[in-house]
Structures are given as structure tokens and as C-alpha cells.
Design a protein around this nucleic acid. Structure first.
Lengths: 134, 134
DNA sequence: CTGAATCCTCTAAGATACTG
DNA sequence: CAGTATCTTAGAGGATTCAG
């Protein structure tokens, strides 16, 4: 009966958001960087090429699925290069591309800010929480 | 009723992740910045104080719930200050704290990188997608 | 106007098992 | 070792409604 208005409005709101995303490079980059495992993986790769298994062990708590998925995403964006040699046993290495390396200074800026101000944030949280709940 | 092994293992993996998070300031900050609406809201507030309704209209596609929720989070972290005046009608303004303002240069660094390299990313995606699907 | 509470949906992410 | 496919679930996010 009539038009399924709900679904349409949903789709509308969704696309409105997605379009505003697509138009904003900063947001797209932050979205990628904000992905749970990206920063940890980039940090690892910053020190040099790593094998799949190495990352799997080094990056605390990542599942094999998320590792592959995240690496694929980074590869797709041209930030990470994947090089497979031989077929059995497989030996796959991941490393930063020049584009990926150009991102390191930005990460460093974030890290610097984070380490300098994380205390302020924690302090603010404590204050906020204690003035809210009690 | 015995040990619910499944739930425990789930909780274990989860806490392993959460603990590694808590230990890494960079990751915590990126997690916050990566939140869907944070960068858009900070961008707005960078230009000066804004009322709730203003943000609701300006930030494309945000729902009232997410706006409030995001602002609460930023307030809790001490990045944004909330000032309410009067009671009826309510007039609430949000603005960056000094801590929040100190974050702007970092955001600027991200923006600069993003705008310079977003083309590379899109190009890489096109290449990747065309070499994968066909 | 600001914002809290409710409900509902859909996706992201973990566990698991299977190929090459 | 590297990667894929499938199932399930917790939670994020959106619509809606109520309150001060």
C-alpha cells in the first residue's frame, strides 16, 4: 500500500551523510585512520616490512579476518604494498608505499599531541564523571 | 551452571583489545577523531561558538541524538565547553576549550595531507578496483 | 529550544572452519 | 602460512517520542 516511505527516508538520510563524506577529504582520511587497527598496523609497518604472520602476532588482539581486511583497505588506498613470493609455502610481505610513508609525519603530529595532552583528557574525564554521577 | 566458556573467551579477546587501546594515546585520540561526526563538529566550532540548533542545521546529516552524544563525548574529554543560559527557553552554546583549540593545528596537518593526497588515494583505488574485479 | 529515553535496524567484527 | 567463506552477535546509529 502506497509508498514505503520509511525505507526511502532512511536511504535519503544515509546518502546525504555519505555524500557529505565523499566531499570532504579530511573526513575520509580521518575515517580511515580512525579504523580500529589502521594506526596499529601503520605503526608496525613504519619500522619496516612485515609478514602477515608477524603482524598477526605483533598487533595485539587483532583477528586474522580484521588484519586481512584492514590490509586490503590500506592496499586499495595505495598506502601499503603487498608482495607475494612463491606459492608454497606462501610468503607475503607488506610495507608502506611512498604515499604511506608521507603519512607518517601526520601520524607523528597526532602522536605528539596525544602524548602531550592525554593527561589533560584523562583529567577532564575524571572531573566530568565525578561531577555527573555522584 | 559450569563455566560459560564461550562468553569468557569473547570477553578475553575483547579486554585484550581494550587494554592495548587504553595504553596507546595516539590510538585513543585517533579513535575519537575518527568518530563520524567529530571532525565535522570541530570544524564548525573552530569558527566560533555555536548553538545546538545551529550545529544541528549546519552539520549535514547529523541526527539530534548523535549530535548530543558526540558533544557530550567531546565535553567529557575537555575539548568542548558547554554553557547553558536561562532555563526557558534554553539557550546552549558550545565552543572549543583551549585544549580543543590546541587540536586545530593537528587537524590542519591532517587536512593538508588529505587535500594534497586524496587524488593519489582515489587513483590507487581506481587502479586496485580495475585490476581486481574484471 | 535543548535533550533524554525508547525502539528498531543494520552493519561491523569475532569465532570458526576450510582451501591452496 | 596466507587467505576466504560463513555464522552469529553486540553495538552503533537512526527515527520517534516525551520532558523541562
Amino acid at each position: 500500500m502506497a509508498t514505503g516511505g520509511t525505507a526511502e527516508r532512511r536511504a535519503g538520510a544515509r546518502s546525504a551523510y555519505l555524500m557529505s563524506m565523499a566531499a570532504c577529504p579530511t573526513h575520509r582520511v580521518l575515517d580511515r585512520l580512525g579504523d580500529r587497527w589502521v594506526s596499529l598496523i601503520l605503526k608496525e609497518l613504519a619500522d619496516g616490512p612485515r609478514r602477515h604472520g608477524e603482524l598477526s602476532r605483533t598487533v595485539a588482539g587483532v583477528t586474522q579476518k580484521m588484519l586481512t581486511q584492514t590490509l586490503r583497505g590500506l592496499e586499495r588506498d595505495g598506502l601499503v604494498a603487498r608482495s607475494a613470493t612463491g606459492s608454497v609455502p606462501p610468503r607475503v610481505e607488506y610495507r608502506l608505499t611512498p604515499l604511506g610513508e608521507s603519512l607518517l609525519p601526520v601520524m607523528a603530529a597526532v602522536t605528539a599531541w596525544a602524548e602531550r595532552h592525554i593527561g589533560d583528557i584523562d583529567a577532564a574525564r575524571t572531573t566530568y564523571d565525578s561531577s555527573t554521577s555522584p
